[in-house]
Simulated assay, not measured.
Amino acid sequence: MADNTFWIAALTGGTAVVASWVTSRGNSRAARIQADAATASQRMQRLQRLHEARRAAHLDLIQQGQRMAELPPHQ
């Protein structure tokens, strides 16, 4: 009876170690995926801000050009 108890305890302990290892790997992978997604989101936001800044600069340039074209000729 004592012999069976040892093997059951060893099997239970081994199962717990394997389950812990599998969970740890899953958590690590999930954390890596989440970090990659956050990085991609930040990159996209930065690109959108850059696009808007360029758009605003181009609009300003066009508006300044139109104002200059409306000025009377200098004599």
Score class of each variant (00 low, 15 high):
V17L: 12
Q48A: 03
I62G: 00
M1V: 04
Q63D: 14
M1F: 06
L61D: 05
A53W: 00
S28Q: 09
E52I: 03
T5F: 08
Q45V: 08
A57M: 06
A30D: 05
A16I: 03
S41G: 11
S28K: 12
T23I: 15
Q48C: 00
R32T: 12
A40F: 03
A38G: 01
P72L: 07
E52F: 02
Q66G: 01
D60Y: 04
W21H: 10
D60K: 09
H58M: 10
W7H: 05
G65S: 11
L61N: 13
I8Y: 03
A30F: 10
I33Q: 10
R67I: 01
A57Q: 09
A9Q: 12
A69L: 02
H51E: 06
H58S: 11
Q48H: 03
T15P: 01
L71N: 05
L59V: 11
G13W: 03
V22K: 06
R49Y: 00
A40Y: 05
L11M: 06
R46W: 04
V22S: 11
S20E: 08
S20D: 04
R67M: 04
A53P: 01
T12L: 15
S24R: 04
Q75P: 15
I62A: 14
H58K: 04
T15F: 09
G65R: 13
Q64G: 03
T12K: 15
L47S: 10
T15S: 13
R43E: 02
G14T: 04
E52S: 07
A31V: 04
R43C: 00
Q48T: 01
G65K: 06
S41T: 14
A16R: 00
E70F: 07
P72A: 08
A35R: 12
M44C: 06
M68K: 08
A35E: 09
G13K: 01
G65L: 13
P72N: 09
F6K: 15
G13P: 01
T39C: 11
A69Y: 01
R32N: 13
H58R: 15
Q63G: 13
T39G: 02
V18F: 13
Q63E: 09
Q75I: 13
R55W: 00
Q64M: 02
S20C: 07
A57N: 04
A37Y: 07
F6L: 10
M1W: 06
G13S: 14
L61M: 14
A37L: 15
W7S: 11
Q48D: 02
